[in-house]
Design a protein around this nucleic acid. Structure first.
Length: 362
DNA sequence: AAACCGGGGCT
DNA sequence: AGCCCAGGTTT
């Protein structure tokens, strides 16, 4: 007989949990994998449409393994944490070409795949194969720390190990997938971070934090985030109906997404006809050009960075040698590329190729 | 162990 | 403005 905590969670899941999600009860490891990667550090409501689009475009592991990188990134566009997408492509191809297309089943084998850590390995092995591994995500940390009145920090190596052991003890080994579903749904809908529903909680008589009034202090985190300011100005070089675009290959935010010519500075730049001319001549060797647009300042807040900058649209007669490493993208193919939100904010305001749309309106 | 990696929603 | 989200990788 399992403890009261586990019993009540399972019962709650059967009788009261009304959360419906397309991957619930799914047994196809590939689909579970896609859903779990999409949901890493991502709310269910935000990831839902991405999951639907992804499964529709790539119904099987093989179809994903054979897809072009850019198409996969386009489907991931706007979801953030783009290394997830890179790793997804890498692991799909690895399974397809090196593992005979057969998805690994054991926890340790799943852990070997890029992009799969302890949480995702536990999720796949329990949901798809019923193996006895407890998921420990943000929900589980919160539920366990509150019920136990446990002030062990959740963002330290020791703390993670601590809650992992507790989660494993609480696991219903006969029903691992359902138990894992139950505790995460419970954390997401009842034992919520901000305004938890303690008065109607089935565990409020078993909850140490509720009894002691500690609920809003738990779970404990030690680290806090520090944001740094970055000033990114983009020169959007056009030439007729083409745009100069390149892929962000270096290790930084938005790796593998596309961008224009980037000019990053320590402080906010003041651009005018004169500073633009000097920059284009001295840095890029551009003599003949037309300034089409100097945009307003755009801002975006990331978890660890504050981004700010402008977009300067320049039409060129010819492409100088300094820009030959850029791809000249035609109108038709431009929409196939994935851009960071910061750039899409500008493109939404100032469609570079909006002429077609304007014609439709006439 | 600490730093890094997005974007969105809630309070 | 601060916190959190079905975390993981790199340094």
């Amino acid at each position: 007989m399992k403890n009261v905590f586990t019993q009540k969670l399972i019962k709650w899941h059967e009788n009261q949990n009304k959360r419906i999600m397309p991957w619930k009860g799914e047994k196809d490891a590939y689909r579970i994998w896609i859903s779990e990667i999409i949901l890493q550090q991502t709310r269910v409501e935000q990831g839902l449409s991405y999951y639907e689009n992804f499964i529709q475009s790539f119904p099987t592991l093989g179809s994903l393994a054979l897809a072009e990188d850019e198409m996969v990134f386009k489907l991931w566009e706007g979801l953030g944490y783009y290394s997830r997408c890179r790793n997804l492509i890498h692991s799909a191809r690895h399974i397809h070409y090196n593992l005979g297309g057969k998805f690994p089943e054991k926890y340790d084998d799943l852990l070997q795949l890029k992009g799969i850590g302890p949480y995702t390995a536990a999720a796949i092995s329990s949901f798809a194969y019923g193996l006895p591994h407890a998921v420990v995500d943000g929900n589980v940390f919160r539920v366990l720390s509150r019920v136990r009145g446990d002030f062990t920090a959740i963002d330290t190596t020791l703390g993670k190990q601590h809650y992992n052991e507790i989660a494993h003890c609480a696991l219903d080994r006969r029903n691992t997938g359902e138990y894992n579903q139950a505790i995460m749904d419970f954390g997401a809908t009842v034992c919520k971070p901000m305004l938890p529903l303690c008065t109607v909680c089935i565990l409020n008589n078993d909850c140490k934090a509720f009894a002691e009034g500690w609920v809003n202090q738990l779970p404990v985190k030690e680290k806090r985030i520090i944001r740094k300011n970055r000033y990114l100005d983009y020169f959007v070089f056009t030439s007729g109906k083409t745009v100069l675009v390149k892929n962000r290959e270096h290790k930084d935010i938005w790796q593998n997404l596309n961008e224009f010519y980037l000019y990053e500075t320590e402080k906010e730049s003041a651009w005018n006809a004169q500073t633009i001319q000097r920059f284009l001549q001295e840095q890029l060797g551009v003599e003949v050009y037309t300034v089409k647009k100097i945009s307003d300042s755009y801002a975006q807040q990331l978890t660890h960075q504050n981004i700010k900058g402008r977009f300067i649209v320049i039409d060129l007669k010819t492409v100088p040698k300094s820009l030959t490493h850029f791809k000249s993208m035609a109108v038709e193919s431009f929409a196939m590329l994935a851009f960071p939100k910061f750039i899409n904010m500008f493109l939404d305001d100032y469609p570079l190729f909006g002429a077609e749309k304007d014609l439709d309106l006439l």
